[in-house]
């Protein structure tokens, strides 16, 4: 019986180029993956690359759409699905921060003193909730899908929890970082059944671990 292709979830977006390069270095045939055009799946001998939205990589891996995959730690925390997080690939560094408008310094504290609860706008409700729970602070979360910085500007929220690589966007929007929530890098993840039934997953994990062991954390 010929073995079916190994299915790997590859994230689109900022992690894509580093991911393709690393998979190639690990010895996989990445022909056609650099420029997939409109293709959703690139099939090469022995491997199927499934090109997914970064937030969907854990979903594909949990439900068997892929045997393994690559995605940011932030997506893993936000998805909270049953996957094995096997290797820190060190690229794609970004951090989650709490920020507030520079002009509104002190306003958030006053609002908290009055309400006893922080009003926070974010695209990442789970990360936000677990951060504030860890600090023992009550929080009202306003889930948004983009332009989070508008939340405090129009007064819906006092602060935001958002992702930033260099801080440029925050500065451009006159937001100042109040505290750090979480640092995130790309991770190699695997389905729990695939790890135990398909030796190719472990082999790939060890190759990726060797390739990235001595790397420093970098931004994409």
């Amino acid at each position: 019986m010929t073995q079916r292709n190994l299915k790997i979830a590859v994230p689109k977006g900022s992690l894509f180029n580093d991911t393709v390069a690393l998979l190639g270095e690990a010895g996989l045939d990445t022909t056609g993956l650099e420029n997939p055009g409109r293709h959703l799946i690139i099939s090469n001998p022995g491997v199927d690359f499934i090109i997914v939205r970064p937030t969907d990589a854990p979903v594909f891996t949990t439900y068997g759409g892929a045997d393994c995959g690559i995605c940011g730690k932030d997506t893993l925390v936000e998805a909270d699905l049953d996957v094995l997080e096997m290797v820190d690939l060190k690229y794609g560094y970004c951090r989650f921060v709490v920020a507030e408008p520079e002009a509104a310094a002190g306003k958030a504290e006053a609002s908290y003193a009055r309400l006893g609860v922080r009003r926070v706008a974010t695209k990442y409700p789970r990360i936000t909730r677990s951060y504030y729970e860890g600090k023992g602070v009550q929080v009202d979360i306003i889930k948004m899908h983009g332009n989070i910085e508008l939340g405090p500007i129009v007064g819906m929220a006092d602060r935001i929890v958002d992702i930033t690589a260099t801080g440029t966007t925050l500065r451009e929007n006159h937001l100042r970082v109040v505290s750090e929530v979480l640092g995130s890098t790309a991770r190699f993840i695997a389905n729990p059944a695939a790890v135990r039934t398909d030796p190719r997953v472990i082999e790939l994990a060890s190759r990726l671990e060797e390739l990235t062991r001595d790397n420093d954390v970098t931004m994409s």
Binding site: T62, Y63, G64, T197
Partner: peptide
């Protein structure tokens, strides 16, 4: 312990 089968994503 947990038991797994190929192509079944959960235990």
């Amino acid at each position: 312990f947990r038991a797994f089968a190929p192509d079944v994503p959960a235990a």
